[in-house]
Amino acid sequence: MRDWDVWRLVLPGVSPLEVWNLPVMGRELWELLGAPRVDADRRAGVPEPALAGRLGPALAVALSTLVKRHAVDAVWLSGGLVCLEGFGAMLSSVSTALPCPVYVAERPLFAPALAGLRLLAPLAPAHPVALDVGQTGIKCVSHTADSRIFERDAARLPRYFIGMARPPDRRHVKAAVAFIASALRVFSARLPDALCLALPCPLDASLVPGGCTYGWEGHESLVADILQAAMGNEGRGTALVLNDAELATEAARGDSRLANHSRVLCLTLGFGPGGALLERR
């Protein structure tokens, strides 16, 4: 990867928000509005059409709290939970109590990754690829292949929550790097010359990652390791790296329904909720 330029992308008007641990109904938000809750309900025998409705109370409290706290004039949602059967009906009921409209991404799973391709367009690449890495899988898009999701294998990549011990030999980080690199190699028949890489964790200016269930917090060479594992010393290009909720907010920026809204709360509803604020000046 010696010929790759790697940048920590900072998007104008986008401010990350920490919403996963928002206190809601005596719990943290991710416990009531996330994939683990849905999976637990499925195991308990809750019928598929009823799953979305069980998320409604937590979503209602969270939206009411966040809309007021950040004084937004619109809300935009994306992520896998938005695709649950009955989510639209539940959202219609929840949103009636809000002082602003709530919009759902037209392609809830792939909207952020598609925004990644648009971010790469000014580079005029021949073969751009965008990877939106989530806690449960990786969404991949390009102009030459069908969009695809690579699911995380929890047996190979167990989830490390806050307070859980990490293997001292860092094998979990190596496994995560291999997972992302493999997804890129399998998805893209040819090496990309531009890559947008969204990661499900905070990132500082030097691309040092914060915490997430991959357990790679503080691993300074994470992005370099991913590129090296995926492409070795072949090819050249530019990689733009950012947080996944920030990329989702860029997708919201491109949604024409939000053109007249100046402050938009953007939430990704997947393994756990992520958030960012979009401000138009």
Rank of each mutant, 00 (worst) to 15 (best):
L120H: 06
G88I: 13
S78H: 15
G86Q: 00
A113L: 02
S78E: 15
G137L: 03
L123T: 08
L131P: 06
L131D: 03
E106A: 15
P99E: 09
C100G: 11
A89W: 01
V94K: 02
A124I: 03
P122G: 12
V94N: 02
A126P: 04
M90F: 03
S93R: 10
G116N: 14
E85Y: 00
L109Q: 11
L91D: 02
A121N: 11
P125F: 11
S78R: 12
L119E: 13
L131T: 02
Q135V: 00
V102F: 15
V102H: 14
Y103H: 15
G137N: 01
P112D: 06
A130H: 05
E85T: 01
L81A: 08
F87C: 05
F87G: 06
S92A: 02
G116H: 08
H143E: 09
T96N: 15
L91P: 04
V104I: 14
A97G: 13
A89F: 00
V75T: 08
W76T: 01
L114K: 10
M90N: 04
L84I: 05
S95K: 14
P122M: 10
V104P: 03
G137P: 02
G79E: 08
A126H: 13
G86I: 00
C83I: 06
P99Q: 10
K139Y: 01
L114P: 05
L114F: 12
A130E: 02
C140N: 00
F87V: 05
L120F: 09
L91V: 04
P122E: 13
A115F: 06
G137V: 03
R107L: 14
